[in-house]
């Protein structure tokens, strides 16, 4: 569904990502792991056109998208829930969700989806008229995910969905992602919290210092003690 081949990302003279190739198949969940500052955020931002691609190809459902503007990529059905949630703090929960569906014209479908996600995230229904800045971190993360879903994406990329959240909330978020997987949504999850992400993912990639150091199935990664220890600071299951 999404394939990155030999992607380089650079900000002026600084090379953030070097020669990374990634493949995400339909219905699959892929984890993109690596230490802080490895270039994960740069990489997925570049996929939606928010970071400058120096060279390489990115294809989504067979269309070359590396030169397309963000809004067009989103309209194609690929979206990103950005790092740090970035909900629109001055807008209400409801307004955030409505803006999430900005690229759609099917009024009935939008209303249907709104109802569906308010069902899935009861807290958002409860706080529907509050400004997003009043929400807790976990609630904001749920809002950010629901907002992304309102565009009815075929594939969702999530950047650090568990960042800065209490363990109990992290579990909730991952439960939710797992239920979305049940509905057949393709996902690419960037995480520092490797264990949680790997429990959900089919396959995994590890980047360090802007380059790919591992690619394989999630279980391969779990059994590769060296990678787990060196790059993710975890004990492998040997």
């Amino acid at each position: 569904m999404l394939s990155l081949s030999n992607v380089h990302v650079s900000y002026g003279p600084i090379k953030a990502v070097r020669d990374v190739s990634i493949e995400v198949k339909e219905g699959e969940i892929v984890a993109l792991l690596g230490p802080n500052g490895a270039g994960k955020t740069s990489l997925i931002s570049s996929v939606v056109g928010l970071a400058p691609i120096a060279s390489g190809r990115i294809a989504f459902n067979g269309h070359e998208i590396s030169k397309e503007p963000t809004e067009k990529i989103v309209a194609r059905g690929l979206t990103l829930t950005p790092e740090g949630r970035r909900v629109f703090a001055d807008l209400t929960v409801g307004e955030n969700l409505r803006l999430g569906a900005a690229c759609r014209r099917d009024k009935a479908g939008i209303a249907e989806d709104l109802e569906k996600y308010l069902e899935l995230f009861p807290i958002l229904r409860k706080r529907y008229a509050s400004r997003a800045r009043m929400l807790s971190g976990g609630e904001q993360q749920m809002l950010a995910i629901a907002r992304s879903l309102m565009s009815r994406p075929k594939m969702l990329m999530l950047d650090e969905p568990s960042l800065g959240l209490a363990p109990r909330i992290v579990d909730q978020i991952f439960e939710l992602l797992s239920s979305l997987r049940g509905q057949g949504l393709t996902m690419l999850i960037v995480e520092q919290n490797a264990n949680e992400a790997l429990s959900l993912a089919n396959s995994a990639y590890v980047v360090a210092s802007g380059a790919l150091v591992f690619s394989g199935t999630a279980s391969d990664l779990k059994s590769s003690g060296e990678v787990m220890e060196m790059y993710l600071g975890l004990e492998g299951q040997e």
Partner: peptide
Amino acid sequence: LAMRAAAKDVPVVRLMGV
């Protein structure tokens, strides 16, 4: 809504497909 949102965060407004 997009104008109000853009006052704070243009990239994310574009992520909404606007």
